[in-house]
């Protein structure tokens, strides 16, 4: 039982990061029906900016580094949309999807040129250690607690933006009917830029969370990016609660598989899940049966 609980806690910690990345996938899909395959790279860029800020500008508080990373990842995404996606918006969807794959490879290699291909570590931020829950026999690391807590804060902030602000109303309108949104006087180009910014800034935050626990390298965005993509599909692409639930589920399932079977299958299970979801319930857990738009 305590073993199971431990896997569950580890899964939640990783899953909350997948959830944050998945939110970006699902937001962008919701608004322009694009699977932005470069999304994992925004996380990588956030991680490198975080590493740079913390290593080179010593004494920078983690909170400041986190904000800088989020801004950097967000602005990069705005630039990518402007340069690579927007000119293709009126073309068939496959064009912009291909562009997204190209941007992904481009950013990976740009990362290699700018930051070098060797792994970089964050300076130690926390007193290493964990909190033991003796009665249950499980351990929660400080960093896990930090990641879980901040993830919840970020998700709550996102919920507030989407449901309680004017730009959030514009986002929801744009995702349901872009022409009708324009006829309301909404500058939908701005809304699309803002959506990319918010989605990528969440990925940038995850980059910092990763950096705190693992090392940082130009290809680090690939695996979490794919896992989060599957999470978004599992939850129902276009659905924000779906992305959160999907992310947590993938994190937990990965950890259960690694714990009870073998960590060899940890990566494979994600794709088994993708195949299962697509063949059994392609709209995902919370997705709607909308053939074109979500």
């Amino acid at each position: 039982m305590s073993e199971f609980l431990q896997f569950l806690i580890n899964g939640l910690a990783v899953g909350s990061m997948y959830a944050l990345i998945a939110l970006g996938y699902t937001m962008v899909y919701g608004i322009i029906q694009l699977i932005n395959f470069a999304h994992g790279e925004f996380m990588m860029m956030g991680a490198f900016v975080g590493a740079f800020t913390l290593n080179r500008l010593q004494g920078t508080p983690l909170a400041v580094a986190l904000v800088i990373s989020m801004l950097a990842a967000g602005l990069l995404a705005v630039l990518v949309e402007l340069v690579a996606y927007r000119p293709l918006r009126r073309q068939p969807k496959i064009f912009v999807l291909t562009a997204a794959i190209a941007v992904s490879v481009l950013l990976q290699n740009l990362g290699r040129i700018v930051f070098g291909s060797s792994a970089v570590s964050f300076p130690a931020q926390f007193p290493q250690g964990s909190i033991g829950l003796e009665s249950l026999g499980v351990w929660v690391e400080y960093s896990q607690l930090f990641v879980l807590g901040l993830s919840l804060v970020l998700m709550a902030a996102l919920w507030l933006i989407v449901h309680k602000t004017k730009i959030g109303a514009a986002m929801r309108a744009t995702s349901q009917d872009i022409d009708a949104a324009r006829l309301m006087g909404i500058n939908t180009n701005l809304v699309i830029s803002f959506t990319f910014f918010i989605g990528a800034s969440l990925a940038g935050a995850v980059g910092v969370f990763y950096g705190m626990q693992y090392s940082v390298d130009p290809l680090m965005g690939v695996q979490p990016g794919l896992a989060a993509f599957v999470a978004a599909v599992l939850g129902g692409i276009g659905s924000l609660p779906g992305a959160m639930i999907g992310g947590l589920l993938i994190g937990i399932i990965e950890n259960l598989v690694a714990g009870y079977l073998s960590s060899t299958y940890q990566g494979a299970i994600t794709f088994v899940l993708l195949i299962l979801v697509l063949s059994i319930k392609p709209t995902g857990l919370l997705g709607r049966m909308a053939p074109v738009k979500v």
Partner: peptide
């Protein structure tokens, strides 16, 4: 075709 926002 009205174009109301169906889920709102």
């Amino acid at each position: 075709g009205r174009k109301v926002f169906p889920q709102l």
